[in-house]
Amino acid sequence: MIKVEWLYWLVGAMFVAMAAQMAVDRGNPRRYGSAAFWGLLGASFVYGTWVADKSAPAAPLGVAVLLMICLAGFGFTGRGASTAAAPERRVASAGRLGSRLFIPALALPLVALACGTLLKGVHLGTGGPLLLQTGSETLLGLGIGTIVALGIGLLLTRERNPAVALRSGRGLLEAMGWALLLPQLLAVLGSIFQSAGVGTQVGKITTHFLPDGSTYAAVAVYCLGMALFTIIMGNAFAAFPVMTAAIGWPILITQLHGNPAVVLAVGMLAGFCGTLVTPMAANFNLVPAALLELKDQYGPIKAQVPTAGALLVCNIVIMSLFAF
């Protein structure tokens, strides 16, 4: 069976290999800090396997995470010299290869699609083990699709040296920088919030202020609260346990007998409206601005604000109409 941990090892190995390239890149004024950050991230991806199955202590991984936070937070990481090919070379290459360049780009999602649908639940031989680990088929498809696409891409471009691909990918990685790790760290923060009892405390405050039995006020507070907490934390995943423990479950579902599926599904989507408008959601809002070389890093957010506002109203209406 192909396990999702193998994919994490592949990602970890990729980070370590890119870190090794960074360490010898004299064009990067902070090459050792950058190499340490990405190398540590790669090692953490691999070590995480044994933390996840509880066969290794979690504390060393916690130390590594805090070290990465300090390396990036105190400015020890940086970018190397551009790895991009000269524009004339790219134009010449595009002229030579033409639309065949799209084959690898399309192969990646098509393989992922095949793994996520056709290969889901397929066994190796009758009664044999599953081909892909249950629940991770699409994730594994992304990994397998990447390998297939890389193979096709190397053949197509007649690039003998896979290190060239690694170097080009490192250019994109350096362009994103530490912001790449922020969403995962926000998920970690959410889990810490939950185990420290933040949700219970917020619930005490909101029950104090909410007028008894007013369904629509409670719906609005839950939806606006999801959006607001998401704006603050940058991640609806982190906001969800807090707001649901505070209002969603005790008031909307237990007290007002709302349909849990509607309340919780729409509540999460109300959080996503917050994600659209917050610079905290760096990977959705700031990373694309950097990737697209925008002068205004808040450009995507400005384009999203009207849609997010309208959809938040839609969510409040949908929850009020269908949950009660």
Binding site: A85, V91, P104, A105, L139, T146, A149, L154, S168, R170
Partner: peptide
């Protein structure tokens, strides 16, 4: 959450060749 980074080398390679 961070696994999407695995696609970067492919994209980088294709962009290098004029995607």
């Amino acid at each position: 959450v961070t696994v999407f980074a695995v696609a970067l080398p492919v994209i980088g390679l294709l962009e290098r060749h004029g995607l």
